[in-house]
Structures are given as structure tokens and as C-alpha cells.
């Protein structure tokens, strides 16, 4: 990454710039891969880019998922359910 020496408000891209935003979560999305029809709607609608696309399948990145529940709501086959986060 090219770094600039100028002392002004220059910020550099970083995954987790705000830290592990997964700690914000109260409810946790749980994906049932057997139910999943690989429509990718959860992936495209995730406001956090926290659902990773692996070819046609998806994985939830719990480090950053804030637990909004949009994915569960847009899933046409209820393959994602929200469960109370337990820490």
C-alpha cells in the first residue's frame, strides 16, 4: 500500500476499520446450508459485506456481522434464522 507523508486526513482501507463489529450483535444469523437454494439474496443485501460468497454458496463472517437480520428477512426459503447471541 502506497503511504503518503503529508499530514492531512488521509485514511487507508482496512477490513475491520471499526474493529470487530460482530460484537455489536444481539441476534445472530444461523444459516442452514441444507435449506439454502443459493439464490445469493442474503449476499447482495447484506449491508455489511459480512456475507461472503464462495462460488454459489455463502458464509457468514461473524467477526463483522452486526446482526441486523436483513439476510434472514430476504431469504425466500427461511434458510437463515436469527438466534439470540450467546457470549
Amino acid at each position: 500500500m502506497k503511504k503518503y507523508n503529508v499530514k492531512t486526513g488521509i485514511s487507508y482501507p482496512k477490513i475491520g476499520a471499526m474493529g470487530k463489529t460482530g460484537t455489536w450483535r444481539i441476534f445472530k444469523p444461523i444459516l442452514d446450508k441444507n435449506k439454502c437454494i443459493k439464490c445469493l439474496r442474503c449476499w447482495v443485501f447484506c449491508p455489511e459485506s459480512a456475507i461472503k460468497r464462495r462460488n454459489d454458496s455463502v458464509e457468514i463472517d461473524y467477526d463483522y456481522c452486526k446482526g441486523c437480520g436483513v439476510c434472514a428477512n430476504v431469504c425466500p426459503v427461511k434458510a437463515i434464522v436469527m438466534a439470540k447471541e450467546e457470549r
Binding site: 482496512k14 477490513i15 449491508p47 459485506s49 460468497r53 441486523c68 436483513v70
Partner: peptide, 22 residues
């Protein structure tokens, strides 16, 4: 597949701005 809005940002949960910008 490329993401230009990186995870671990400061948006509220359920934010439409990041959703659209992605």
C-alpha cells in the same frame, strides 16, 4: 464478487446506504 465497501465499518445495522453503495 469484489467488495469495495469493506466489512467492519461504522454503518448502523441494516443501513440502506451501505446496501446501495455495495
Amino acid at each position: 464478487i469484489e467488495e469495495y465497501v469493506l466489512p467492519g465499518n461504522a454503518a448502523c445495522p441494516g443501513c440502506p446506504s451501505t446496501m446501495g453503495l455495495r
